[in-house]
């Protein structure tokens, strides 16, 4: 069975802050990875910039030594819990 390679995803949530590692996903190439990342990691409008890097290209250190894409997401108000009127007195929702 064909398996698609792993990509690490970094998202800059807004201007003024740096990219933060959001997680990973699978895709056949960089363009697909970017598109997938937009769908998977910024559905609730959490990003202005995405980086994708093949997981295999990341070099890690050992602990002991130590406008357009994101607009459509902004109006899907039913994703946010505050959209619903919770009856008075009902707790833990």
């Amino acid at each position: 069975m064909t398996a698609l390679p792993l990509w690490e995803v970094f998202v800059r949530p807004k201007r003024g802050v740096s990219h933060v590692h959001a997680g990973s996903l699978h895709a056949s190439d960089a363009e697909s990875a970017l598109r997938n990342a937009r769908d998977v990691y910024t559905r609730r409008g959490e990003g202005v910039s995405i980086w994708v890097v093949p997981a295999a290209e990341v070099t890690a250190s050992s602990p002991d030594e130590k406008e357009a894409w994101f607009d459509p997401a902004a109006d899907k108000i039913y994703r946010h819990p505050t959209f619903y009127d919770v009856p008075d007195g009902v707790e833990h929702l």
Partner: peptide, 11 residues
């Protein structure tokens, strides 16, 4: 075909 595509179709 892939879970990422389920999400895309949803979108």
């Amino acid at each position: 075909p892939e879970i990422e595509l389920d999400i895309a179709f949803g979108n």
